[in-house]
Write a protein that binds this DNA or RNA. Structure first.
Lengths: 155, 155
DNA sequence: CAGAGAACGAGACCGAGTCTCACTCTTGTC
DNA sequence: GACAAGAGTGAGACTCGGTCTCGTTCTCTG
């Protein structure tokens, strides 16, 4: 049941992303299609290198996806707010689906031990960041919270 | 007056940092001394490259400071919690003084327009992050909040 | 179906950060 | 003070995410 929900969510995001790009006047292309499919299957951030590895070893017969196409597509998706770019401090950018039909806005815990990235969401945190912006007089468009510590598995 | 305060704070941090390193059994060395002096004069984050530029053009007669020494020293300072490593998402690590006698723990607003990094601190935010960790059952050692938006100058 | 131009892949290139190694300097000991 | 041990240092080669270029391939429109 959960799997079905996730699958549906994934399909929704992929369809939504494609619709946005087509409406913006973009052609379709093999690299883009496969990258969108890959991202749609994830539930947390994926680094460009992981994406490259996954798409480079294409299935038999498929043309491999070039590195340039991956970065180009990620940039395009990011420009249309279809993807969130995440920096955790290890010098590697990570990307995850975003937008109306994707999972909720969330943040991350980076485990000091195993290096795993654990997503979490918290309404109270969102509220207090909103109030914070008002208090400081900043007009903010986005924010990012990263906790460092021990993930549940490593405690 | 403010200048004097800042100067004192800077001196304090530099002295504190040196004391911590000596107590840990480290020798002194020209590169380290100059890097500590440089950091002590800053009030916000400095990238390794900016540090390298500043120290490479050493004053007449001084031996230039090598890149390896800079990264080594920054790593050492970080290991002793004398410095905070900050990642803003542009692929460049930034460092700023930290510890008992330095400025308070703070976070940053990254301006979408001018790219400036504006430090701020907020006790309510700290409290809500603390409560958040408890609520989620994470044991956190550190956290980082980055807001994106327009800085006061660019509004 | 043909042309325009968007999308693509290979690979050269860039630059922040790491590693190595021979040299220099600080520190403790006599 | 002289000295030895070994911590600290600088030059430069190297790594590896990420960018850029360019000739080719593919998609869409007419």
């Amino acid at each position: 049941m959960l799997a079905t929900m996730l699958a549906d969510t994934a399909t929704d995001w992929a369809a939504y992303a494609r619709a946005v790009l087509v409406r913006a006047g973009h052609h379709r292309g093999a690299a883009r299609e496969r990258l969108i499919d890959l991202l749609a299957r994830q539930n947390c951030a994926l680094s460009a290198i992981e994406i490259e590895d996954a798409l480079r070893r294409g299935r038999r017969g498929q043309r491999p996806v070039g590195r340039a196409s991956i970065y180009r597509t990620l940039e395009l998706l990011h420009a249309h707010d279809l993807v969130i770019r995440l920096d955790v401090g290890d010098g590697v950018a990570r990307y995850e689906p975003a937008g109306p039909t994707s999972e909720h806005h969330h943040h991350h815990l980076l485990c000091d031990h195993c290096g795993r990235l654990v997503p979490f969401e918290d309404a109270a945190l969102e509220r207090s960041i909103e109030k914070l912006s008002d208090r400081l007089g900043f007009r903010t468009t986005d924010h990012e919270v990263t906790l460092r510590g021990d993930c549940p598995d490593c405690r």
